[in-house]
């Protein structure tokens, strides 16, 4: 844990130095929120807790998935190609410690980002909603590990530094496009269940409603456990296949 703690501090310093990424991860969703919902600040409408939480959950899903892909998974690929993952590995001694330290640093930053976003959200809708405030934070704390594990599938790819951002953009585009496809076809339903953005939105929705006393169904709990377990298995497999040495450049 000593090693994780030391590396965690380094990742926090390094992440907070990256102001452009911070803006991309948080400012863009806030700008979009303002652009589409600012009218409700001036002309309040009656909304239910469910509607508010449903709206917020997709923004949380965006903030979480973009942060994890940019700052954890594809960051590891970039560190590998630049040679400093190799350097780090021989200092720390374990790929798991490096991933855990980076993930903990991003969870810390996500807690701040989600809190800031939620405050803006509640101001716009002129409401105080503990389901949203606590739900967003709990979702961040509970769901980032399985979602990061699911993204470890990219670690098995022999991806060059120049190709990684393209793959990331296509992946995000694909995940959000899938959200818009509501179909009774079983295959599409399964694909949607496995979609990390859908997983984040649906589960953060249910976690927030739980804060307000809505107990989820047994079917939902089984589905949640199954998908979470599947994501974790992908993570273990992906990280075990992750090579330390760069693929393109020698280091």
């Amino acid at each position: 844990m000593n090693k994780v703690k030391a590396l965690y501090k380094v990742y926090i310093v390094s992440s907070l130095n990256n102001k452009v990424v911070f803006m991309y991860n948080l400012l863009l969703p806030i700008v979009y929120l303002l652009a589409t919902n600012l009218k409700y600040f001036f002309q309040p409408v009656q909304t239910t807790n469910q509607e508010l939480i449903n709206t917020a959950s997709y923004f949380w899903a965006y903030i979480i998935i973009v942060t994890l892909l940019n700052m954890v998974t594809f960051e590891m690929l970039s560190e590998r190609e630049s040679g400093y993952f190799k350097e780090l590995f021989f200092i720390v001694g374990s790929k798991w410690h490096i991933l855990l330290a980076d993930l903990l640093a991003q969870v810390t930053i996500l807690v701040l980002e989600i809190t800031l976003f939620n405050i803006v959200f509640l101001v716009i809708f002129r409401t105080i909603n503990f389901g949203i405030l606590l739900g967003g934070l709990l979702a961040t704390l509970l769901l980032t590990i399985p979602v990061t594990c699911s993204s470890c599938i990219f670690l098995i790819l022999k991806v060059k530094a120049q190709t990684a951002p393209i793959i990331e953009t296509i992946t995000l585009f694909g995940m959000f496009t899938l959200l818009g496809i509501k179909n009774e076809n079983t295959l599409i339903k399964i694909v949607n269940l496995l979609n990390p953005v859908e997983y984040l939105a649906q589960n953060s929705n249910n976690i927030s409603l739980l804060m307000l006393g809505n107990i989820p169904s047994g079917t939902y709990v089984i589905q949640f456990i199954t998908i979470t377990t599947f994501y974790i298995l992908i993570g273990v497999w992906g990280l075990s296949k992750f090579t330390i040495s760069p693929i393109e450049n020698r280091a």
Partner: peptide
């Protein structure tokens, strides 16, 4: 064993903001 090694690679990359 690997755990008993220190390895300073040829390329000089490390966290630039530290």
């Amino acid at each position: 064993t690997q755990k008993q090694l220190a390895y300073k690679a040829q390329q000089l990359h490390f966290f630039p903001s530290l």
